[in-house]
């Protein structure tokens, strides 16, 4: 076994930090499995949304409440934040000065916050049109699915904050590195879920 062997899916630390690379093997594999079971939760909520879509109970319909502009902006924001997190990961792997990692994490954090602000604005717009979760089965399913993704983004943002503090306190020790790898997987996973939301909730909802 060479030190640069790929030990888990995703960014590996092989070649730059052999010791942490070995430790990361089961830690990152375990996190992949966690994401898999989280993905099952989202899959079921997508299925629920599909089942409940016609149950508008005489209330607002997808076409009447969804807007393409802001959701497209949200998509771009989240995808860009994945890119900036990727930059942070690469900086971490190749031992850049801590300032560089900090800056990329801060940009990611900022993009995440702007995304949440947009999403909050969407929801309050829907509320203003009488589209709140207690109105119909369709809206219950919508507000069961999309805000859960939002909650995940909030969790990711808190996690980024904790990691920024840990970077200051501990520097790049093995646990900080492994947790940055995990956080990366989590953040990219949220992207994938959002793409699914954008293309199965918003886009078909806007078709006439």
């Amino acid at each position: 076994m060479s030190a640069s062997e790929t030990k888990h899916a995703g960014l590996n630390l092989g070649g730059t930090d052999a010791k942490t690379h070995a430790e990361a093997e089961h830690a990152i594999f375990g996190f992949w499995i966690f994401l898999m079971s989280d993905a099952v939760i989202f899959a079921l909520l997508f299925a629920t949304y599909g089942v409940m879509l016609p149950a508008t109970a005489g209330g607002p319909t997808p076409t009447s409440v969804f807007k393409i502009g802001p959701t497209f902006a949200e998509t771009l924001l989240l995808l860009t934040s994945s890119l900036t997190y990727g930059m942070a990961s690469v900086a971490m792997k190749h031992g850049s000065p801590l300032g560089g990692i900090h800056r990329w994490l801060a940009v990611t954090l900022l993009l995440g916050l702007i995304f949440l602000a947009f999403e909050w604005h969407d929801f309050s717009d829907m509320f203003a049109q009488g589209a709140y979760p207690t109105r119909s089965g369709f809206l219950s399913a919508f507000f069961g699915l999309v805000p859960l993704h939002g909650l995940h983004v909030i969790a990711g943002i808190v996690w980024i904050l904790v990691m920024m503090v840990q970077l200051r306190v501990f520097g790049l020790d093995a646990r900080v590195k492994i947790n940055l790898l995990r956080l990366g997987l989590f953040w990219h996973f949220l992207d994938i879920v959002w793409i699914a939301i954008f293309s199965t909730v918003y886009l078909p909802g806007l078709l006439p």
Partner: peptide, 12 residues
């Protein structure tokens, strides 16, 4: 007060 499984308002 969601309506996932209620009788009324589109619950299933």
């Amino acid at each position: 007060g969601f309506h996932f499984f209620t009788n009324a308002l589109g619950g299933n």
